[in-house]
Design a protein around this nucleic acid. Structure first.
Lengths: 379, 379
DNA sequence: GCTTGTTTTTACATCGATGTACATTGGCTG
DNA sequence: CAGCCAATGTACATCGATGTAAAAACAAGC
């Protein structure tokens, strides 16, 4: 027997289709009696609303896409988990896509997967360029995670440059003088790796340590095997170093393993810091010092921001005069970026009144110190 | 400017809406000239089909749901990655849900998320009971991952009982006599943990080792902290043991950490085996021996099976006479379960001709031996 | 040129839910 | 009890794409 339609419920309850619809949507002016009867019929027939019809009519699906490079990099998995939880709170469903750090995939994601059925997109880009983000009229609202790629896009991130500077500073304060940056990249680019490398170099400069180009250890991915290989290569090449700043925890965990295999003691011989604070680093041997971004806050801010954009896009007449408290509660974890008045130049961009200028939201991070820098204390 | 509709393309190209639709859907009888003109218009206007309309008309969305307990348990993340890849091949989109091992969430997932817009569901259940799976008429086709919960449902899994038996046997063959099962549960249930525990006990029995109920170490989750706590508890209680069979790698990694903290040598004092073969276990100190399920095969078989079910459900008249080669290529990794004729009792269940009886697909696994059982060789 | 048969194209109804605009009901006031 | 307002309920059009059936265009054969 086919799934019941709203029509069937209406017949069963002896009311019109619209009334059933009203009950489903919690429309105010429905008598309690009618509501009860309709509810009972819905229950009895096992009716469930058909999203296709609703979407067609309403123009919204309630689905947002989260696009990450690889789902099995724990940082992204943990982030996804938070995003899903957060989205659930506003009854949004999350569709996860893997871009494989592939520009084509990321572009496809930006385009809304060749069709139209996500209300918005949260994208953690690796291979996109600023150009790709221009001229997004007609595409779903998008919030970027990670470093700012282009001035015109909303984005949410920790202050990667500062975080890397703090981490490197800490290594230096421990007396380390030759800090390698695993995954570091010396480019003017705007990506996360670039920002972290800048912070790293800034800290070295501060301490009056000359920068050695060989201190940037390239990697071909941001996973454990790459970290392990990179450190193996460095060791084989006879490079001397007493600290590693690994641009994420996966690289760091791979590095730890290689150091162990080569009998290099951590942190006595080499101190190691990673980024992301994934669970694996809290249980590794030795445990891993790391820069911990407030992932829950990243997810929260991203989802909320996207939600507001979606609302603006759907109904662009929203008055939005009360700029004091944008979305009723935007508590812990997030503070606005350097530019407190949110609008660039204090001027709202050309478009309609409802369209706000892009926002850069900086989320908190903290340096978590564990055995890989501080040593094995409690034993 | 609003996104163009098929109507706009039709007007622009000077043809009817249906002709545009025909071009989009590669309908055979469209003249080359018309096709070219329409394609050009589509390109020019930047038209993209609206999924809502198509779905409404066609009754399919091309979206399948993958429901896992927690996305940030690496096994599920890795599995999700494979499922997404596999689904992509048949141009299906995957929607991921986290159940949080919560029965209510799992039930909601089974119901198609209270609405209807997934064509099918791949569910990795933790808290469901057989009853929940009965009477699924009118719900989307569902494939279960992990142990068989109910006779009537399709499912894909490794032979968990055998795998656990093999792993335990190996520990015994290394001379270990007191093997604890971390996460083991002594229940008649049908879940994965139950099956693995059965295999564990079978191996002990085989070797003539008496079963000690205290050898089953309970956990409150299947993550590293739980594994670490469980082992800490056992050590504190003064239980003596020389091997740990951890029911997944996360527990094992947590266990390794605690053993390390207590100065227990692995594998000299205690050998450790996990399940799942996650990346973290290949880089831990020591590296982790594990039961490696063929995740790619699990994903492949699950997606293909689901796809077939969806087709059956959509168009139940499919002849399906050629049972020799069900779906044109079902290559590596999967072999049918104990019952080679696929149908239970060789009899097709009551329903229509197109509906096939449930399938149990057993996927290959292998025991991967690393340092945590074999010792540190290459050093 | 006209019939016949085949492509190609079109008009229209349809999928399911909901917004609009109007009809109805009931309750309350004077 | 008439009159009015608000609360409820209904009929119908609509969202966008596509299946159906039939019309229009075209080709071939006599």
């Amino acid at each position: 027997m086919a799934r019941p339609r709203i029509k069937d419920v209406a017949r069963h309850a002896g009311v019109s289709e619209k009334t059933v619809s009203n009950v489903i949507n919690d429309y105010a002016h429905v008598s309690d009696r009618t509501r009860t009867v309709v509810r009972a019929s819905i229950e009895q027939l096992g009716y469930r609303v058909n999203l296709a019809g609703r979407h067609l009519r309403k123009g919204r699906t309630g689905i947002i896409a989260l696009v990450v490079p690889e789902l099995d990099i724990p940082y992204f998995a943990e982030l996804a988990r938070h995003v899903i939880r957060e989205a659930e709170k506003c009854s949004l469903t999350v569709l996860i896509h893997q871009s494989g750090a592939d520009r084509a995939h990321e572009l496809a994601a930006l385009a809304g997967f060749g069709s139209t059925f996500v209300d918005g997109i949260i994208l953690s880009p690796l291979a996109l360029t600023a150009d790709d983000l221009r001229d997004r009229a007609g595409f779903p609202p998008t919030v970027l995670l990670g470093e700012l790629l282009e001035e015109g896009a909303d984005h949410v991130a920790i202050d990667n440059e500062r975080a890397a500077r703090e981490a490197t500073r800490h290594l230096i304060s421990l007396g380390r003088r030759t800090v390698l940056a695993v995954g570091g990249i010396d480019a003017p680019g705007l990506g996360t790796a670039e920002a972290r490398t800048r912070g790293y170099r800034a800290a070295l400069a501060e301490a009056g340590i000359a920068h050695d180009p060989a201190a940037l250890v390239p990697v071909d991915s941001f996973r454990m095997p790459a970290g392990a290989r990179a450190v193996a290569r460095v060791l084989r090449d006879g490079v001397r170093f007493d600290a590693l700043l690994c641009l994420n925890d996966q690289l760091a965990l791979g590095a730890l393993r290689t150091l162990y295999e080569h009998g290099v003691r951590v942190p006595e011989d080499v101190a190691v810091i990673g980024f992301d604070d994934v669970e694996g680093g809290r249980f590794s041997v030795p445990t891993l010092s790391t820069v911990a971004p407030d992932k829950a806050a990243v997810a929260k801010v991203a989802v909320q921001l996207l939600r507001r954009r979606i609302e603006e896009a759907t109904d662009p007449d929203g008055a939005e005069p009360d700029s004091t408290n944008p979305d009723g509660g935007d508590p812990e974890g997030a503070r606005d970026g350097a530019d407190p008045d949110a609008g660039r130049d204090g001027v709202v961009d050309g478009a309609g009144p409802g369209v706000q200028s892009p926002q850069d939201r900086i989320v908190a991070h903290r340096l978590v110190l564990r055995e890989s820098t501080e040593g094995h204390e409690g034993r």
